[in-house]
Simulated assay, not measured.
Amino acid sequence: MKEKLILIGASTGGPGHLKKILVSLNSYFSIPIVIAQHMNPVFIPSFVKQFDNELPFDFFLADDRHNIEASTIHICAKHCALYKRGYELKLENSLDVASLYNPSVDHMFHSAVKLVKDYDILAILLTGIGHDGAEGLSQLQKAGALCIAESEESAIVYGMPKKAIELNANIKMMNLDNIINSIKKFGGV
């Protein structure tokens, strides 16, 4: 059986949605989660610290290279890429990415496409302005990952998820409550 991994991309309205998702998970939730939330890099450390103080998980600021392990949540400080070395899943900064958005959701999603053969991946694109994440989510879906875009019903800004659905009609569209239920189901909760 494959190990599991959850990837979440978000922009405008994302911090509140992320908190609602993470609060709904119990402390026994063991699937690692990697989050790319558009934010000025100056504010990301305090964002991670706030989550770490309020929620029963181990949060890590992904600002260098490190391992992804069960029961951990990693929030990208900069453009991040996932890769597998031996039996270990790793996350590292990518310095050569040209993107209007920090961190780039598309870059994170694209880097995970090659992991689909080794991991069951749930990729989620939440609320946000623009199109970041749409192309990467589409590529993940085509590679075999379970992909969800937030519906207009619950999105604060229905830009990024709308673009994802326009690119690939096979991406599931759900409101935030159903996304939470899908995460729990994926995690066996």
Rank of each mutant, 00 (worst) to 15 (best):
V48H: 07
Q141D: 13
E153P: 00
E152V: 00
V105Q: 05
K117I: 14
H110D: 12
I148T: 03
L61E: 02
K114A: 13
I75N: 08
L91G: 03
K90F: 01
P161S: 04
H110R: 00
D118Q: 10
K163E: 14
G133S: 09
D120L: 09
G144P: 05
S154Q: 06
K163R: 12
L95N: 04
S151R: 06
L137C: 12
E88W: 01
E92I: 01
F57H: 04
E152H: 05
L146Q: 02
D96A: 04
N93A: 02
I165F: 15
E54A: 07
L115P: 08
G130M: 01
A123S: 09
N67H: 01
F51E: 02
I73Y: 14
E54Q: 02
L61T: 00
F47V: 03
N102T: 11
M108W: 13
G128N: 12
P103L: 08
Y101W: 14
M160G: 15
Y87H: 11
K163F: 11
P56F: 12
S154M: 02
I129L: 15
I156Q: 12
N53E: 14
F109D: 10
Q141E: 13
D63G: 02
R65Q: 10
A98Q: 15
D63Y: 09
A123V: 08
K49I: 02
F43C: 00
H74Q: 01
S46V: 04
E150Q: 15
T72E: 05
G130P: 07
S46G: 07
P56V: 08
E152L: 09
A134V: 14
H79R: 02
S138H: 06
L125V: 12
E69Y: 00
M108K: 03
N93S: 07
H107N: 15
K114D: 13
I121H: 12
A155G: 09
S138I: 08
E150L: 12
L95R: 03
K84L: 10
H74N: 06
N93G: 03
G133Q: 12
L82D: 06
G86K: 06
L100Q: 14
E152D: 03
I73E: 08
H79V: 01
L82R: 04
E92K: 13
K49H: 04
V113R: 02
M160I: 14
Y101A: 10
S71V: 00
I156L: 15
F59R: 05
D52R: 06
H107E: 14
L61V: 04
N102I: 07
P56N: 07
S151W: 05
P103W: 01
G144H: 05
A164N: 15
D106C: 13
D120I: 02
Y158G: 03
H110P: 00
